[in-house]
Design a protein around this nucleic acid. Structure first.
Length: 882
RNA sequence: GCGGACGUGGUGGAACCGGUAGACACACAGGACUUAAAAUCCUGAGGCCGCAAGGCCGUGCGGGUUCGACUCCCGCCGUCCGCACCA
């Protein structure tokens, strides 16, 4: 037996390199489509090739890898691919700043990050690697695009677009945050432009309804998507305008409402400043025109909206109430009415809407309560609140509403809908039921170089002509310039000048490229057949899809996931995927961030942040004192925040892997914190993980030294051996369950327990334990394998195995060992724990009751009172009620 | 404002379907080994009272249901996140 001083420490960096080579040489993780085997598609959101991986990547890919390796061991044919979301602005910014071509920059970054990912020992099938910037990928995207054009799912529309004056590009609504560009932070302007868009609104209903079926998605994400799509049922109502007051040509005003039941509470109409009626009225009214301009200038940021007053301008126009033509309602232009939603016009019922009541109070408009609680005193309270300016928006009964009085709002809604639906205004009905969505079509045109070219040609004679399939891909020109703002493709001297594919006349190429969200909306499909000549290989797609477990950050909860869901449907409609697939991701998991303390120089404003590696610490716990390593000057230990370049609270995965090894980093990010929550990166935690690795190695080395595998399996195990076997098999069972449920932190805790039990057993010289120790050690190593694959391989070899643990099947737990012969049962008196009993598990309830009642502690607690009843929960508890 | 999640020791957290709260880890304290340190091993620890045995309290707060509540229900308080004038 090697004594402790002789025993070599586990050399992680050397071992890890060795085993990574073995895996690569054996093509261990190469996946083939095999309909004979059950499949499991594990996918982590692919990275943007920024240049270096960060701890967030380490956490994300480790989680996926644990699941992938586990499923492999369980006998699944696992697809676990990796690629690069490689188009996007940073490459162009780098080109402008450093005079390096975006392609060169991107591919160099990919090479660097690929090396880093490989050093993590992930069980990836690198033969399926995809880079979305590669023509071999985007050629298929161009095919998909043209097929979507022919199905009407991609179309051009003139629309107001969000123009980012700094990035010189159009932004999707989703990329505008509080009125500012999501990348540049510049205030976004509105411009009219012809844009390519995807008809995601065609699927609005399906996208919202299908959310119900996604029961393995976080509730939070489903709710976010539901809110984003924003379905509401209501009524379109056309109001006749009083001809003596309305501008010429305007005879009616159509509004959308979800509350037609409150029509008798109407006290005003309001239109958006950009509404045609507002514009027409403004033509003859300079004051109104000025008001509309002022509204347009008003910020739309959250802060602006919150503080902004409800402002309006009475146009003098009157609308005729649809339920009473003698009732004239004034039409205002109001700053809180949005042109983009509904018809850009509303009717205001102040008593039932908080915005309306504010508006009405400001302009002295009538406030008529129409819905109030059915019974007192709630009704009086609601009425007085309305009087104070608080709208009543809950359910109740109709009042002040003539024929609707006494009805519920729901019934009133239906009555109004059918009444007005049956009446005519001109050729059409006065009102019609309508479902409205907040979701807009997805505008994909970007005035950028580093994106997928939109494969169409503009011909003066033929209009928009698709590039013929044989001419695809339309590739990006290499010799673009990046030294000025604007679109490099548009100012390229020759690229856009082509002949029309239809009439051969000189024509112009489309110079817009696609939003990079398009690239990531179908990459998971391409992974199933990355070399197919067509965008998809149906057989492969049918076998592999949907993705069984998708793992990524919550920041993609809305856009990426919604777009991917749309693409699955659009690809079904264009024949690239089976139609009934629809949902691309069966289960979704959103992992938490990696966070770290922040450090800054003391007494300096604005803050000067320091890297953790530049700070020295003295003392422990709360008494820690930090100084700057280089100068010895005091450093303030700040709050724990998401690792970011700006706060410099970064830990470089490369440093950790070089020093402690990938397994250590992997183990750390899996430990302690539940995977959906943030994990705090600490040096102590990493050291703890490293201690555990060394401890496992010592145990395995020790067990191997003792050569215990020669032992005969005894007919009867000693009680101690049986205990160890029980712990091993119970842990085996629990770790499997916990990995499947992605409760990695709980799995880790179980592995610590098994390790503790094993070290305790090793301290005992009992030879009867040898076989059980050997068995428990092998189980431990196999359970560690998905999480710390290199260490596990090393231990496996040390235990004399000549195969890779990566190829070893997951061990089977012996069912008999999962059940204890004896159980410890808590004994309560009146629900308070007083004692415990260790008894045979099949002891009868009556015997158990008798035993419990004999306990001194129980007798004392009963204190002579009559025992009323005794509750026995088998194998858990006895509760004496006295 | 609307929607969602969460609240457990010094810290991260565990606790199956309502059944012994605090597993496991970090930090801490004490001890062993060592000339010393590191490494390793052992022990202790929710709070209060007590030498101890033991007792009382205890999962944000207040109620309720139950033989029994971290878990279920009602009402508060607090933290975090998402959306935001969506008619």
């Amino acid at each position: 037996m090697a004594d402790e001083t002789q025993r070599e420490r586990y050399n992680a960096p050397a071992s890890e390199q060795h085993w990574q080579q073995k895996w690569e040489q054996g093509e261990v993780f190469k996946t083939r489509t095999d309909p004979g085997k059950p499949k499991c598609y594990v996918l982590e959101m692919f990275p943007y090739p920024s240049g270096r991986i960060h701890m967030g990547h380490v956490r994300n890919y480790t989680m996926g890898d644990v699941l992938a390796r586990y499923k492999r061991a369980k006998g699944f044919n696992v697809l676990h691919p990796m690629g690069w979301d490689a188009f996007g602005l940073p490459a162009e910014n780098a080109a402008a700043e450093r005079k390096v071509h975006p392609g060169k920059w991107t591919y160099e970054n990919i090479a660097a990050m690929k090396t880093q990912l490989k050093s993590m020992g992930l069980s990836l099938d690198w033969s399926r690697e995809i880079a979305t910037c590669d023509p071999s990928y985007y050629v298929h995207q161009q095919h998909l695009f043209l097929d979507m054009v022919s199905k009407g799912l991609a179309y051009r529309k003139s629309s107001k677009v969000n123009w980012d004056p700094v990035d010189q590009t159009v932004l999707a609504n989703e990329q505008v945050i509080d009125g500012k560009g999501w990348r540049s932070g510049a205030t976004v302007e509105l411009r009219e432009r012809l844009q390519w868009a995807f008809k995601i609104t065609d699927y609005a209903d399906d996208l919202i309804n299908s959310l119900k079926r996604l029961d393995k998605w976080p509730e939070k994400v489903r709710v976010m998507q539901e809110n984003w799509i924003g379905r509401s049922e209501g009524l379109m109502i056309r109001w006749k305008l009083d001809a003596t007051t309305a501008p010429a040509g305007h005879t009616e005003l159509e509004i959308f409402t979800t509350r037609p039941d409150t029509l008798y509470g109407a006290s005003f109409m309001a239109v958006a400043p950009d509404h045609p009626l507002a514009k027409a009225a403004a033509e003859k009214n300079p004051e109104l025109a000025a008001f509309c301009d002022e509204c347009r200038r008003m910020g739309t940021s959250a802060a602006d909206v919150e503080t902004a007053e409800k402002k309006g301008f009475d146009t003098g126009i009157k609308a005729l109430h649809p339920l009473d033509p003698n009732w004239r309602v004034p039409v205002y232009v109001a700053n809180f009415v949005l042109m983009e939603y509904g018809t850009g016009a509303i009717f205001g019922c102040p008593s039932g809407d908080q915005r309306d009541i504010q508006f009405a109070r400001q302009y002295n408009l009538p406030i008529i309560a129409v819905v109030v609680p059915k019974d007192e005193p709630a009704r009086s309270q609601a009425l007085s609140k309305i009087h104070e300016g608080l709208a009543y928006t809950d359910d109740g009964v109709m009042i002040n509403s003539r024929e609707l009085d006494g009805m519920t709002p729901k019934v009133a809604f239906d009555i109004v809908a059918s009444k007005l639906g049956g009446e005519k205004l001109g050729a059409g009905p006065v009102a019609a039921r309508k479902v409205n969505f907040k979701l807009r079509d997805w505008s994909i045109s970007r005035q950028r170089y580093w994106g997928c070219p939109i494969p169409v040609v503009h011909c003066t004679a033929c209009g928009i002509v698709p590039v013929p399939t044989d001419d695809l891909p339309v590739t990006l020109p290499e010799d673009a310039t990046f030294d000025m703002p604007g679109n490099p493709l548009d100012r390229h001297p020759t690229w856009k000048h082509v002949t029309c594919p239809k009439c051969a006349a000189p024509a112009l190429r489309e110079t817009d490229t696609m939003d990079t969200f398009v690239d990531s909306s179908w990459y998971f499909v391409r992974f199933t057949a990355p070399d197919a000549k067509t965008p998809t290989d149906q057989a492969a797609a049918n076998y592999w899809l949907p993705v069984d477990q998708y793992i990524g950050g919550i920041e993609h909860a809305i856009l990426h996931l919604l777009y991917s869901r749309f693409f699955a449907r659009a690809m079904g409609a264009t024949g690239h995927l089976q139609k009934n697939l629809a949902e691309p991701f069966d289960a979704l998991f959103t992992q938490g961030m990696v966070v770290h303390e922040t450090y800054r120089r003391a007494g300096i404003e604005p803050p000067q942040w320091l890297l953790p590696t530049d700070v020295r610490f003295e003392g422990e716990g709360d008494a820690r004192i930090a100084t700057e390593a280089a100068t010895g000057k005091p450093v303030i230990i700040g709050s724990i925040e998401k690792m970011s370049k700006s706060k410099k609270n970064l830990v470089d995965p490369d440093d950790i892997i070089a020093h402690y090894g990938a397994d250590c980093a992997r183990w750390f990010v899996l430990s302690d914190s539940p995977p959906e929550r943030d994990v705090i990166w600490t040096e102590d935690g990493v050291k703890g993980a490293n201690r555990f690795i060394q401890r496992v190695w010592r145990i395995v080395d020790d067990v191997a030294d003792r050569n215990t595998d020669g032992g005969e399996i005894p007919g009867i195990y000693s009680p101690e051996a049986l205990d160890l076997r029980r712990i091993a098999h119970k842990t085996l069972h629990a770790v499997g369950q916990n990995i499947e449920g992605l409760r990695f932190n709980v799995a880790v805790a179980g592995l610590y327990e098994l390790t503790n039990a094993l070290s305790a057993a090793l301290q005992k010289p009992d030879p009867a334990l040898r076989v059980a120790v050997r068995e428990a050690t092998e189980i431990l190593v196999q359970l560690l394998a998905p999480m710390m694959p290199h260490l596990a391989e090393h231990c496996w070899a040390r235990l004399g195995k000549h195969t890779l643990i990566a190829d070893a099947p997951w061990p089977l737990a012996e069912a008999a060992l999962l059940i204890d012969d004896t159980v410890t049962i808590a004994v309560q008196v009146n629900g308070k724990r007083r004692d415990e009993l260790t008894v045979s598990r099949d002891l009868s309830q009556d015997d158990l009751k008798a035993l419990a009642l004999q306990l001194d502690t129980v007798v004392k607690a009963i204190d002579g009172k009559t025992v009323k009843k005794i509750i026995v929960v088998p194998q858990r508890i006895v509760n004496v009620v006295a």
